[in-house]
Amino acid sequence: MFNNSRFLRRIDLPLIIAVAILILIGIVIIGSATHVNTPGNERYWYVQRQSIFALIGAALVFIMMKFDYRMLQPLGNKLYIFNAILLLAVDIAGHSALGAQRWIQIGPISFQPSEFSKLIMIISLAALLENRVGKLNTFKDLLPVALYLIVPFCLVVTQPDLGTALVFLAIFFGMIFAAGVNMRLIAILFGFGLSLLPIFWHFLKDYQKMRIMVFINPNIDPLGSGYHIIQSKIAIGSGLLFGKGLFQGTQSQLNFLPENHTDFIFAVIGEETGFIGTAIVLLIFLFLLWRGMRIAREASDNFGILLAVGVNSMLAFHVLVNVGMTIGIMPVTGIPLPFISYGVSSLITNILSMGLLLNIYNNRQQLIF
């Protein structure tokens, strides 16, 4: 049995509470967004499913606390190969929805491997970079790490899932920064990437091109690709300071706002809880990022630092892009809002990433609170 006082000092209780609050907010908002448009006895089907998998995720985190995260380091390459096989299986045997082939069906359960691949890539990259910390000074040093990213990146792009591919890049740059990469290399890479944008444009699918065009001017296709952004901004703006009240949002309840329980759930929060509600949600995310950076700073080894920075990079990019696209300052990419958007694969991945942070915190060198 654990000594209660010692056990509580070895877990990051504020982080657990913050994540629990976000999940509860998500469940309530999912209920608001879906209960009107879901028939009969399945009125709260999304709420029930999200709640069940939140509990499953919590149980998995408890299991994760039983081992030392450093046990994952020797498994980096094996996990990388498993990840590549899983993503390849989507291209071969996956099923399509919303114009993309991203899901694998096993019996009644459908899951999205690209969501889990984010956490797997964090672990694999951390294992690869652990012995390269402070040694990424030339392109020759950086090339093996970049090549390591290319295979899963390309497999995800072909699904097509450009949003997840961009998350991979955010994780990559966050982790090589933590590994002490020469910043001159980063500047050159960004410059090179910008120079390739005109070429990259020709490889985008028509709907992806249209998303970028409506990001610049939503009114270019107000009843098509621009519809989501226009309705989202209307919803958020109509919430004013205090919102219209839970379950009272007209844009969401009357089904004007598409994907209101997944990609555009932040717009529902804005409409129903106003500026105050959205500010609270964003402050909780900011708190999570602060805790994540503190855990990285207190980690006992480079592997732990890299893992924590990778998780933080993933979380920060998700929040930035999801919130940004709902208010019209980012293109629509289909990236969910962590812990709040409906989605079993996304929820479990994010909960497991928090479990990884808790494990690093539990095994840090000093007990600091």
Rank of each mutant, 00 (worst) to 15 (best):
M71I: 09
F62I: 14
A93W: 11
D68H: 10
K66Q: 10
L86P: 09
M65K: 08
G76F: 12
L72D: 09
R70D: 00
M71E: 14
L79C: 06
A93C: 11
G94T: 03
D68E: 07
F67P: 01
R70N: 03
L72M: 14
I92T: 02
A93V: 12
D68L: 07
A84S: 14
I92P: 01
L88T: 04
I63R: 12
L60M: 15
V61C: 15
I81D: 03
V90L: 00
N77S: 13
N77L: 13
V61K: 07
R70A: 01
L79G: 09
L86K: 11
R70C: 01
M65T: 08
G76L: 09
G76V: 13
L75Q: 12
Y69C: 02
L72H: 13
L86N: 06
K66A: 13
K66V: 09
L79A: 09
N83Y: 05
K66W: 07
A89Q: 09
M65S: 11
F67K: 05
F82M: 15
M64H: 03
N83F: 06
F82H: 08
M65F: 09
A89V: 07
N77T: 11
L87N: 04
Q73P: 02
G76D: 09
V90Q: 00
A84M: 10
M64T: 06
V61P: 05
D91P: 01
P74F: 04
L88K: 00
L86F: 11
P74R: 03
F62D: 12
D68K: 13
